[in-house]
Amino acid sequence: MAPVPSHSAHPDDAPESYVGLDAEDAGRLARSRGWTTVRSLPPGSIITMEYLAGRLNFEVENGRVRRCWHG
């Protein structure tokens, strides 16, 4: 019997590809690539450390993505 394919917890996507993009454009692009949750945060934000599969985080400054990570 063939193995059952497993669905990745998040899209096969490089978070660094969003750095430098306009935040709104980056959010639309991320959703089109399969991210279920996209979170934009200002630099230095206090955030929870829980990991959420399918979430992409943007650190946004002056309307541009400065840093990006998943979870």
Rank of each mutant, 00 (worst) to 15 (best):
A2K: 00
P5W: 14
S45T: 06
H70L: 01
M1E: 00
S45I: 01
G71V: 02
A2P: 12
A14M: 08
A23S: 15
P5N: 09
R66P: 02
W69L: 03
N62A: 05
D13Y: 11
P11I: 05
R31N: 05
S17R: 15
Y51G: 08
C68M: 06
R64F: 10
V19T: 04
R67P: 05
G34K: 10
L21P: 00
Y51M: 05
S6P: 06
D25R: 13
E59T: 15
S6Y: 10
P5K: 13
G44D: 02
A14D: 15
I46C: 00
V19S: 01
H10L: 01
T37G: 02
L56T: 01
S6D: 08
S6R: 13
R67A: 15
I46M: 00
V65E: 03
P15C: 12
I46P: 00
V60M: 04
A23M: 06
A53C: 11
N62E: 04
N62K: 11
D25K: 15
D22L: 08
R55W: 05
N57Q: 01
A14G: 04
A14S: 13
L56M: 05
T36F: 04
T48N: 12
M49E: 01
G71D: 14
A26L: 08
R28T: 05
S8Q: 13
R67C: 06
G54C: 08
